[in-house]
Amino acid sequence: MTLKAAIMRGKRSVYEDFWALDEVSFEVPVGSTFGLIGSNGSGKSTLLKCLSKIYYPESGSISAYGKLAALLEVGSGFHHELSGRENIFLNGSILGMSKKEVTQKFDEIVDFSGVEHFIDQPVKNYSSGMYVRLGFSVAISVAPDILVVDEVLAVGDAEFQEKCRQKFIEFKNAGKTVILVSHSMDTVQQMCDKAAWLKNGRLVQVGEAAPTIQAYLGSLTTGSV
């Protein structure tokens, strides 16, 4: 917003409120994997950002029972000139882990990322795949009760994706809750127990994953809600 716009706002310009999300209420059972589906611009990412306390809803409330961690982007806060090792500690503390925790999990993180040989190299020399793998490995090691994931499963090569899938299954078996956004219906179908379908910021359907996905896909082919 420019100064001019701010001054003008009180006078002549007219603006319309846009509600990115409205009347969206649902519960996510503990220990379930919950998928959010919908077309572009339907408010999925906004909802995730609200869940992860990046945005704050103007009205309504969100209650989380347990430690929540969000994986909206991998490698947040990486510094290009610093080494992989330094970045693991930096990124870990950004994600809310203590130095002790990171030290404990360090080997696990490095092992999972598969960049052992280059851990003391500056991350700017990493391939883009290595970069996201390292970022993902740190993020996944946060060990929250609830994990919020935005379309980041699609990182790395097939082998790494398989590793991630394993990690999520492990996570689920440990009784943790996962909330994820994906455009890949196969992923949602495979991983989620329940799903919610958003359209233009409103909740259309929520319930068991399979029928919700069916309804969503059905609306795409017929062109009606």
Binding site: K49, S52, K53, I54, A70, L72, E73, S76, G77, I94, L95, G96
Partner: peptide
Amino acid sequence: ANAGLVQKVYF
């Protein structure tokens, strides 16, 4: 300068 971080991570 850290807009990306502010928009992606809660701290």
